[in-house]
Design a protein around this nucleic acid. Structure first.
Lengths: 266, 266
DNA sequence: CCGTATTTGTTCGTATGTATT
DNA sequence: CAATACATACGAACAAATACG
């Protein structure tokens, strides 16, 4: 036997999808029962074929309506300059709207907690039991969930702000110009550099739910961690941003490069 | 029923793996038959549990030896400055060896072809039927497959080189200092900037085989495309590099940031 | 080199639960 | 409430790849 039957079925379904014969518009693929009949395979074999397509992000099944072809216009995230994961919602919105899509941002959820999670303490170089303030926001494009972002500030910084009467970091309101700008205005602290770490991992339960990813964890997510540094290379804040890989792409420009073509086309 | 049985089994296996009770050393997990007995579940349910772990990159099964715990030290790819995907094997080797790991590079496979694949023609801004030269190399760390790299040069550039008697781009030999440097030396063409595009997608058949990824496509790959530009922002070359996401991580530094701790520790 | 045992891969069948329409 | 469609679970059989004597 050359190829397993479930692969042959999966390949045939994929061919039909690419050819536009299946899954056009809002219609789901034929049900498992129908496929069972048309391919002469048992239901479990059909399910294996569909699982193979699901793992590759080609289809997605929403019980009990059926299995749908996934078609997503990727959003291109420009990482030139200080852009990208900065946490400045105004910059994010203007970039999204430049390609005729609509950006929205949830109000932040504010938390004060021990920086016990190893990575936060580590990257903010906080000793032992220090506390941090976190601001967590959800971002949407055209109403679809697009990214999750959490920024951590050392509590010592927040207290310095409070002493000057600057309380916006504690408000559950968006800060369009970004928290870094706010720190600079009120404390004179400048972000002189930053480090981005980018990795890919399977989504956790929260992420799966928010992004409406398949339960089986087959669509991975980008996790980007931007640590900002002030004078003496001391860490200023840590911003963690989560993007599903299936709807995002990153672009970095260095030196003299041509303009990017207006994206957003299918 | 709170959680499905296969998830309970998967969670229990994961706990035991994290606690070091399972999969230590070179030993595989207990066989499906043994797990069947110890969990009182049918073989298919056991297989569902293992599939759940496989999709998350926690285990990998190699028939018919068994299922093994995956333990990989990620390699951190620094993207500061011109580093990263440049195609300079010397730079790559020194970065890898700085963390006490051994880098090797295959001899390149040279091909001359029509730039028919849409993306190549598009990014090199080549008209219609123009030809390109491609150099394809496989890179290893500690003997394990780590990345695949292909660089495309417009054939017109290659011909200019040949007229000056510079033939190394056609040799199936590594160019440690990189093809860009070679172009500059012999044609005086400088790369004044570049654009990196980074996206994540499921691996194709070749990639699955080379990297020894699970057949089910559950481990995604990074695809990075670096287009280099010379004067007048004309494209000079396109380098496509493929990394499996499970063994790589990217770091970008901008401005003043502290030194990175020596990585490579487990 | 051969045959056997082990282990996973694939496929079938069947039954029951659960969520949506 | 009923019908539909997917999710979970069990059992069984044969195939394919590898290890070992």
């Amino acid at each position: 036997m050359a190829d397993p039957k479930y692969r042959q079925i999966a390949d045939d379904l994929r061919r039909k999808i690419d050819a536009g014969e299946l899954g056009v518009g809002e219609k789901p693929l034929p049900s498992e029962k129908e496929l069972e009949a048309s391919y002469g395979a048992s239901r479990n074999t059909i399910r294996d074929a569909i699982k193979w397509l699901t793992t590759r992000g080609i289809v997605q099944t929403r019980p009990p309506q059926g299995t749908f072809v996934v078609r997503i216009d990727p959003f291109i995230i420009a990482m030139d300059r200080t852009n990208g994961f900065g946490g400045e919602s105004a910059a994010y919105a203007s970039e999204v709207e430049a390609i005729n899509r609509k950006a929205t941002v949830s109000k932040p959820r504010i938390e004060i907690q021990q920086a016990s999670e190893a990575h936060v303490a580590n990257e903010l170089k906080i000793e032992g039991e220090a506390t941090v303030l976190s601001r967590h926001q959800q971002r949407y494009i055209d109403g679809l969930p697009w990214s999750l972002q959490t920024t951590f500030y050392p509590m010592t910084l927040v207290q310095s702000l409070l002493q000057k009467g600057a309380t916006r970091l504690l408000d559950a309101e968006d800060i369009p110009e970004g928290g870094v700008q706010y720190l600079q205005e009120h404390l004179g602290i400048k972000q002189l550099g930053f480090r981005d770490e980018l990795r890919v991992r399977p989504p956790d339960t929260n992420e799966t739910e928010f992004f409406d990813l398949p339960e089986d964890g087959s669509i991975a997510i980008f996790e980007t961690r931007r640590t900002g540094f002030e004078e003496d290379k001391r860490p200023l804040r840590l911003t963690v941003t989560i993007f599903p890989v299936d709807r995002n792409q990153f672009v970095f420009d260095v030196g003299e490069v041509p303009d990017r073509p207006k994206s957003g086309a299918a």
